[in-house]
């Protein structure tokens, strides 16, 4: 197993810019996730000792909020919008198609680590429904062909 020492040190470095108050907890988790892409146990342990707060408490807050993830992400994060407008315009079908195309279920990462597929509540681009967001780019007014083209585009990026 790889040593967790470098992660520990990096976490310390990130935490040093925060005051050790309880109200710093969520911004700390956000900053760490921004750096590591997810929140490994060692990061939560460091936060727990920095704030002198039980690890269970840090874990409780982490798992309460949808933003935080405990597993690393693939190279590309595909978010399928399930807002009301997207729902009535076929978000479930888009989701199903992506699951078939990528060969994974929502919430999973492809074995080659290229894509992570995620369901999200609303991306706020309701007039372009149905919408998916790949990394930071939204793709709207989707149909089956467009979804496949988007996936191909990102697959191609990694070759």
């Amino acid at each position: 197993m790889k040593s967790s020492q470098p992660k520990k040190e990096k976490t310390r470095e990130i935490l040093n810019s925060f005051t050790s108050e309880e109200s710093s907890l969520i911004p700390m988790l956000q900053a760490c996730q921004k750096h590591f892409g997810y929140l490994p146990r060692v990061v939560m342990e460091e936060i727990s000792s920095y704030l002198d707060m039980p690890l269970s408490n840090v874990y409780g807050v982490t798992t309460f909020y949808a933003q935080f993830r405990l597993e690393p992400l693939g190279d590309h994060l595909v978010k399928v919008c399930h807002g009301t407008a997207c729902h009535v315009r076929g978000a479930d079908k888009i989701n199903e198609l992506l699951e078939n195309e990528l060969g994974i279920k929502s919430g999973e990462t492809t074995p080659d680590g290229t894509f992570t597929l995620e369901r999200v509540a609303c991306l706020g681009c309701c007039s372009l429904a149905p919408v998916i967001m790949v990394d930071e780019t939204a793709h709207g007014n989707l149909d089956r062909d467009k979804v496949k083209a988007v996936v191909e585009k990102y697959r191609g990026d990694d070759k």
Binding site: E21, S23, I26, F64, Q67
Partner: peptide, 23 residues
């Protein structure tokens, strides 16, 4: 303060707990 993705935080007292660093 950046929210972390919880619909219930639209409720005033839940929102304040979130700013304070709690669930």
């Amino acid at each position: 303060k950046e929210g972390a993705g919880a619909f219930v935080c639209g409720e005033e007292t839940a929102l304040m707990h979130s700013i304070e660093g709690e669930r």
